[in-house]
Amino acid sequence: MDKVNAPVGGHQAIANARRLGTSLRKKRIRKFVGNKLAVFGLAVIVVFLFMALFAPFLTPYDPLEPNFGQTLKGPSAEHWFGTDSMGRDLYTRVLYGARVSILIAVSSSLIANAIGVVMGAFGGYFGGWLDKGLVRLSELFACFPQLIIVLVVMAFIGPGTFNLILVFAITGWTGTFRLVRAEYMSKKEETYVKACEAFGMSRLKIMFFQILPSVMTTVIIQVTMNIPGYVMSEAGLSFLGFGVPMSTPTWGTMLNAAKSMKVLLYAPGVWLVPGCAISLFVLAVNFFGDGLRDVMDPRQQ
């Protein structure tokens, strides 16, 4: 926002703007640090990422190796969170599961938002029939349960980790689209855009080099706030048997074990562990996202 709003001017003006920028950044960081929940969220996220990245160094077990002598055991010194129906260490599986679950959520959110931004930019900036069409399309997506769209698309392109990301991206762009479109609609009336247009700058250039940076705040917040939804959706779909292949440990495929009444009723640890991992991670991202929004975009609280 800071950089772009400084119109064509002398070096002094730019320097001023830069100074303003750094002090603003400092102010924001201070504000963020003051938000205890947001800092807690960030800390949890960092811990989760660390655990996912360094999983092999944090556990002596193989996430896939069965040990039929140790099935459905409760927490112990060897198995901190207990074991599942094949005697595999739950702590280990949560670590390895985090890799796939977080990867899916983050990449889905990034791609979905990229689609939303492009569509929103074109719709908001160009307006007209294109805009109308895109708005109708997004309404179409909003008027029936996302789960059904996801399932139908999933049936269409087939299962698999990459396809799951693709499906989330195809079906998840509408929220960002609406926000970005609204921003573009208001921004295109602003003076600096009019000025660029008057200079004969190409419309694509204006869209992506002039307006986009000022919309990035909204987008970054959107990307963050969408991640929890995808974590939960991945788990939900895997729970219904539509997600990633069952043999890949993810938080969702681990939860699938709760479909067995035996596990559901008499071995709660098996589903409590991945369930709590999901909830904690989602809670952390939500707190972090809220904090981020408070700091970066005070209008939207």
Binding site: L64, P66, S85, M246
Partner: peptide, 18 residues
């Protein structure tokens, strides 16, 4: 079959053959 026991049998085969 979608039950966890079947998935477990599949995982076991994959593991032992691996």
């Amino acid at each position: 079959y979608t039950d966890q026991t079947t998935v477990d049998v599949m995982d076991a085969i994959a593991y032992y053959m691996g």
